[in-house]
Design a protein around this nucleic acid. Structure first.
Length: 121
DNA sequence: TCCTTGACTCAGA
DNA sequence: CTCTGAGCCAAGG
C-alpha cells in the first residue's frame, strides 16, 4: 500500500472495469484495450497515458475482480490468453469453450468473430 | 527512496 | 502470421 498518491477514484475505475466486463454476453470476448477504451480514465491521470497503460490497469483490476465478473471473457489484443503461470489459463479456455468460443490450434480466439462489441453491433 | 515487475499494446523485422 | 523490443503508470520489496 503506497501513499494516497491517487484518489480513491481508482477503486471506482476498477468497478467500471468489472461492470463493463459484466456487460459482455456469453460466447463473446473483449480485449483489455477495448475495456480501457470504453471506460473513462481516473482523475489525475492523463488520457494519453491512460490509453497507453489502461489495458494494464484492466489486468490489475481483473486480478482483484469479484467472482461475479466473467474475467474469462477478457483477453489480450492478440486474441490469446496471457494469464500468469498457473493462473488458470486452462480454466479460462474451458470456460470459453463451454460458452461456445472456439480456440485455434495456437490457443487463439478469432476476435473477428467473437470480439465484443462485435462488428455486427 | 530506488529498483523490479506486471492478466498489455504497438511498431518493426 | 509470428517473434522481438520499447513504452507506459502503479504497486511492492
Amino acid at each position: 500500500m503506497a501513499r494516497y498518491v491517487s484518489p480513491p477514484n481508482q477503486l471506482d475505475f476498477k468497478q467500471q472495469v468489472w461492470q463493463c466486463v459484466r456487460q459482455i454476453p456469453p460466447g463473446m470476448v473483449a480485449t483489455y484495450g477495448q475495456i480501457a477504451a470504453l471506460i473513462s480514465a481516473p482523475t489525475g491521470v492523463d488520457p494519453a497515458a491512460y490509453v497507453s497503460f489502461g489495458a494494464r490497469w484492466v489486468g490489475g483490476a481483473m486480478k482483484n475482480c469479484p467472482e461475479d465478473v466473467p474475467w474469462q471473457r477478457v483477453i489480450n489484443s492478440q486474441g490469446k490468453i496471457s494469464l500468469p503461470r498457473g493462473g488458470g489459463e486452462e480454466i479460462q479456455r474451458e470456460l470459453l469453450e463451454t460458452e461456445g468460443v472456439q480456440f485455434d490450434e495456437r490457443d487463439r480466439v478469432d476476435l473477428r468473430r467473437y470480439r465484443w462489441p462485435g462488428p455486427g453491433l
